[in-house]
Design a protein around this nucleic acid. Structure first.
Lengths: 246, 246
DNA sequence: GGGATGTTTCGGTGGCGACCAAAGTGTTTG
DNA sequence: CAAACACTTTGGTCGCCACCGAAACATCCC
C-alpha cells in the first residue's frame, strides 16, 4: 500500500477533479438540460417563440412554483432570457448558440434511438413551412436551400458558408442589401439543420431577410399562436420567381 | 374557478408531460453528460484516443467502482463504446455524432463563460498540431483549411461542405483518390470546429486521407501516448508544397 | 500454481435537488 | 379600493443517484 496513487476521502477526490478540468464546464449546462422538466421547456422554446412562465410550466408538467425555479436557474446560466411584460414574463432561448447545442443534442438523441416518439413535429403544416427563430424552416425551406446551393450561390468559408461571387450578385439583384449584411457582425449565411427534415436550410441575416420579404410582400402570413407559415394563393409562385427556382 | 385551465395533482401532471413529448428525449443523454464525473470522462475522450477504465476513473477523480458504473451507463446509452483487451477495457466515444454534440456543448459552455479555466489544451504542442479523431487539428490545421477555402476548393452543399470543381481537380492531381471518396457514404469534406482555435478545420474522408498521407510520408509522427502530432525537419515544407500553400 | 493488476458487482450511506403548498410581490381589471 | 391573475419566494418532504469499501471475477506475469 506504499504506492497508492491517490487517496479519496470524499474531499481530496473532489479537489483533484476540479484541478483537473481544463476545458469548458460542460457538466453544468448539461445537468441543467438533463432534467426532464427543463428539457421539456427548452424543447418547447426551440420553436423560436417566446413563452410565458405559465405556458412553460404547463409544457413541462410541473407546478408554477417549480417552473419558476427552473426558469431562474436556466436564465442565470445563460440558456434563456426572460422579459417581463405586464403580469406575464416571456422567456426565449438566449441566442443561437443555445439553439445549436440543443439541435446537436436532439439530433444525437434521435440517432441513438433515444427518441420518445416520431421525428419532428407531427403537424403537416408545421413540416411544410414554419418559422425557425427568424428564418424559414420546413420542407420548402430545405428545398430552397438545396436548389440555391446546387446553383453555386454559396461557398464554404472559414465561418461556415458565405455568399459566393455569383450568389452576391444574385441576391443583390433580387433586392437584398447584401453589402449591409456583410458589413454587420452577424453571419450573412448559415446552414441551419432543419428539425423535421434533418437537412439544412438557410439561416443568418440573409435567411432572416428572406422571411421578412415573404411576409412583407404578403406571400405568406405567420399564424399568431404557432410557428406555422401559411402561403397564400400565388405566394409560392412569387417566391419561386424571386429566387428563379426550377 | 369554472375555467381553470389545467389541474396539477402531481400525477396527472407527470402523465401529461410524458404524452406531450414529441421530439427526441434530449434529457436522458444530457443528464448523463451532466454529471461532473461523467463529463470529465467524456472530455478526456474528446481527444479521440481510447482510454482504459482506470485512466478514466483517474481523470474523473472517482474510485474505480464508481467509474465502472458510469461507464456502463454511458455505454448502454450509446455515448461510448468499450472493447476488452486483455485485462484492460478501452473506451472511446461511440461515433462522431457524439463528438459533435459534445463539441457544441463545450462551445456553448465556453461562450457562456461557464468555462472552468483557459480555452482548449494548455500544451503548446497540442495547440499547434494534434489528431482529432482521424484527422489533423490545431492551429496548423485551421490555417490549412482557411487557405484552401480562400482558394475556393470547397463549396457549400446540402450536407455541409463539399469539393468544388477546382477542388476536386486539385486533390485528384495531388494524389488523392477523390472519386472513391465521393462514392463512399462518408462525407468527403466536413468542417470540424477546432477545439483550441475555435475555428474550423478539415474533417471527413479527405481530412483523414490528408493526415494519413502526412504520416505515411514520414512528414510527421504521432506521439504514442498523446494526440500530439510532431512534424519532422522539412515536414512542414513538404506538406505546404503538396497543398501549394503560401 | 501464486501474486499482482484491472475491472465489475454488491450493499449501504449520504447528500443534493426536484417537488409542492402556502404565503408574498407586483399587475391588471372592475 | 378590492378582487383576480401571473409569477416568485420560502419551507419542508422525499426519492434518486453518486459514492465508497469490500469482495468477486478476470487476466497477465513469473
Amino acid at each position: 500500500m506504499a504506492t497508492k496513487v491517490f487517496v479519496f476521502d470524499g474531499r481530496e477526490g473532489k479537489a483533484q477533479a476540479d484541478a483537473m478540468k481544463e476545458g469548458p464546464d460542460i457538466s453544468r449546462l448539461s445537468a441543467l438540460i438533463g432534467d426532464p422538466a427543463r428539457a421539456n421547456m427548452l424543447s418547447a422554446l426551440m420553436a423560436g417563440k417566446a413563452l410565458t412562465a405559465g405556458e412553460l410550466a404547463y409544457e413541462a408538467g410541473v407546478s408554477a412554483a417549480t417552473a419558476s425555479g427552473h426558469l431562474r436557474q436556466m436564465a442565470e446560466a445563460g440558456l434563456i432570457e426572460g422579459v417581463s411584460q405586464g403580469r406575464h414574463r416571456y422567456f426565449r432561448l438566449a441566442d443561437e448558440h443555445v439553439q445549436r447545442a440543443l439541435e446537436a443534442l436532439m439530433s444525437l438523441a434521435a440517432q441513438k434511438g433515444h427518441l420518445r416518439s416520431r421525428t419532428g413535429p407531427r403537424d403537416p403544416a408545421l413540416r411544410a413551412a414554419r418559422v425557425c427563430y427568424d428564418h424559414l424552416a420546413g420542407a420548402q425551406a430545405v428545398e430552397i436551400y438545396e436548389v440555391l446551393t446546387a446553383r453555386g450561390l454559396f461557398a464554404a468559408s472559414s465561418q461556415g458558408i458565405a455568399l459566393s461571387t455569383p450568389g452576391r450578385a444574385f441576391f443583390a439583384q433580387a433586392g437584398f442589401d447584401v453589402a449591409a449584411m456583410e458589413r454587420a457582425r452577424r453571419p450573412t449565411c448559415r446552414a441551419c439543420l432543419d428539425w423535421s427534415e434533418r437537412r439544412y436550410h438557410l439561416a443568418g441575416s440573409l435567411g432572416a431577410a428572406l422571411l421578412q420579404r415573404v411576409l412583407d410582400e404578403g406571400w405568406a402570413i405567420r399564424a399568431p399562436d404557432s410557428r406555422v407559415v401559411t402561403f397564400r394563393e400565388g405566394g409560392q409562385g412569387a417566391l419561386a420567381a424571386l429566387l428563379q427556382l426550377g
